[in-house]
């Protein structure tokens, strides 16, 4: 699993993650407040300029944007067919700019930086006793660590089906996959507690 972060040293890379995230949030509010096609057109142009300062290669741009362009394109076509060209253009410019800016923030902010920001943002919740801020990073790390494990278990179960001449079906694959994966929870939890990572009991 390759992250969408792209190593580099552009102005956006150097900007603090907090500034980028707050900037993105403010921009999204402004974009939904704007209604004139001209203003939205200018916003879209500005977004393209911001994205182009990243100086990404074409192959990288494709990887970042392709799945999003497909969704946006489909919804715009649907809007065009049912609500006419004015609405479709507004949707295209507004969401297009927002997605481009969001992709720019993702491409220039490392996962560690994001986790730090989330942990900081979770501090007020910790004070309310809802969660422990440090758990967020731990949980994200666990998820990333175990995705390849689950995928390899899936392959094993599939092969076991094929070896017995059975067709792998969603149900007959999902059940052993879930039970096998969740059964390891006790061991992992014990390992975490034994290392004192969460500093409790």
């Amino acid at each position: 699993m390759k992250t969408l972060y792209h190593d580099g040293d552009t102005a956006l890379h150097r900007l603090s993650p907090r500034v980028k995230l707050i900037g993105l949030a403010v921009t999204s509010v402004v974009l939904f407040w704007l209604h004139s096609p001209v203003a939205l057109g200018i916003a879209a142009f500005a977004s393209i300029i911001v994205f182009s300062t990243l100086k990404l290669k074409w192959s990288e741009i494709r990887r970042q944007l392709r799945p999003l362009v497909v969704t946006l394109g489909l919804v715009c076509l649907f809007t065009l067919a049912f609500n006419g060209s004015a609405d479709a253009l507004t949707v295209f410019l507004r969401l297009g700019s927002l997605m481009l800016l969001a992709a720019a923030v993702t491409a220039t902010t490392g996962i560690g930086d994001f986790i730090d920001e989330i942990t900081l943002a979770a501090m007020p919740l910790e004070r309310l006793g809802i969660l422990r801020a440090a758990d967020v990073g731990l949980a994200i790390g666990l998820v990333i660590r175990f995705v390849p494990e689950v995928v390899s278990r899936y392959k094993t179960i599939r092969e076991a089906h094929l070896a017995r001449g059975l067709r792998p079906r969603p149900l007959t694959v999902a059940v052993p996959l879930i039970i096998l994966t969740l059964r390891s929870a006790d061991e992992i939890a014990a390992a975490i507690d034994a290392r004192g990572i969460r500093r409790q009991k």
Partner: peptide
């Protein structure tokens, strides 16, 4: 936070602007 973990390889903050 930028891992393409949603179906179709989608990820990043942009999926929350779609």
């Amino acid at each position: 936070i930028g891992l393409p973990v949603l179906s179709g390889g989608r990820g990043g903050l942009a999926v929350f602007a779609a």
